[in-house]
Simulated assay, not measured.
Amino acid sequence: MIPMPREDTPLWQDSEPLECVMVVPEAPGVKTFVFRPPSGATFLFRAGQFITLELPMPGGPDHRTYTISSSPTSNVYLSVTVKAQPDGRGGSQWMMDNLKPGMRIKAFGPAGVFHLPRQPDNKYLFISAGSGVTPMMSMATFLFERGEEPDISFVSCAKKPSELIFRKRLEYMASRVQGLKLHFVVDQDEPYEVWTGYRGRFNQLMLGLTTPDYLERDVYCCGPEGFMQSVRDMLHALGYDMSRYHQESFGAPVERVEDIPVPDDVVPQEKAPAELTFSGSGVTASCTETDTVLAVAKRSGLNIPSGCNFGVCGTCKVKKTAGEVHMVHNGGISDEDIAEGYILACCSHPLGKVEVAM
């Protein structure tokens, strides 16, 4: 039996292995593993940090980092939430198949710079996709358990409603306080089940609908690289102060502030020259990177059919035959069309010389 901590219980040091005391299924292919030190020591960490586990894999020890999904206020235990990999291999899959209560694992940490400030009294916007919800869960639970009313807009994205990790726990917390607002976004419905939340890819329209005051909030984002890139693109386009933006990568959590990678985002510049050639009409027009293809076409006397002017309806889809554009759309074009060279003229900005087939 693992002893309960006393008032004078020391803090856990990573020289002591952790014992798995519980395994909780969270969603299809997702489990939470709960750990305690055999000595009964307590944990000290910041909401959003990660821990490194030394997994006894068949080919030798494998060190894997996992974000802590439990709250620092619950310092008698620590949990990580793990999603199985599609290929059925790796450390996460080993944990899913082999890690059981009673087993002891060597661990290191906690560490990481993706966490809330020491006095988390600001307004927050948490945006996550898939298992990227784990640090947000730790942060939200910590703010919920502080004893003060939080101010959180929480956006959680998944492929299907059944894959929304921590949905019930988040709904419970939101039912007890007024300051936690939940917004779930899924790509597709479940068969024969009603879904009344948002559908499709998270975009600028959803951002405005879920969190009208997003410009006033500190943004924390975690998910696949492509997802985080799209979030950064939409925030750049909407004039958000990116010094208040924080993100954690699935593959590269960092331990020191100076090691945080600076995203090489493309941001159209108002004074950067560009040029658009409409090959079918024989028209070439000079412009800047902040002009849209649609606006340049209209100034040049050309008619590109358009509707929403916000990247939703897809009416202004045209074929790009040369050059590069920066496009931040809101679901009006498919990945397949983009791969074939199509763009939405209303939300595409030319980068240098670009040719369009019209």
Score class of each variant (00 low, 15 high):
Val80Asp: 12
Phe278Asp: 00
Gly331Leu: 07
Met206Arg: 11
Glu26Lys: 15
Met96Arg: 05
Val177Leu: 12
Thr288Lys: 14
Asn330Met: 04
Glu216Leu: 04
Gly352Leu: 13
Met327Asn: 12
Glu255Met: 02
Ser279Trp: 11
Leu44Met: 14
Gln13Tyr: 02
Phe278Met: 01
Arg256Phe: 07
Thr141Trp: 05
Gly179Arg: 10
Pro25Ile: 05
Tyr342Thr: 05
Cys346Gly: 06
Gly314Met: 00
Trp12Cys: 01
Val318Arg: 11
Arg199His: 10
Pro3Thr: 11
Glu149Phe: 11
Asn330Ser: 15
Leu55Glu: 09
Ala140Asn: 06
Thr292Tyr: 10
Cys346Thr: 13
Asp291Asn: 13
His246Val: 04
Leu116Gly: 07
Gly29Thr: 07
Leu205Val: 14
Val219Tyr: 10
Ser15Glu: 06
Arg232Ser: 02
Ala339Val: 11
Pro25Phe: 06
Tyr192Lys: 13
Asp291Phe: 02
Val356Ser: 15
Gly91Leu: 02
Ser175Glu: 02
Phe227Ile: 08
Asp265Cys: 07
Leu294Gln: 03
Val21Tyr: 04
Val133Ile: 15
Phe250Arg: 03
Val231Asn: 15
Leu182Gln: 08
Pro37Cys: 09
Thr81Leu: 00
Ser243Cys: 01
Leu11Arg: 06
Gly91Asn: 02
Ser175Ile: 03
Pro72Met: 12
Ser334Arg: 13
Tyr66Phe: 09
Met4Arg: 09
His115Ile: 00
Met96Trp: 01
Ser92Val: 04
Asp87Val: 05
His115Arg: 09
Tyr198Trp: 12
Tyr245Lys: 03
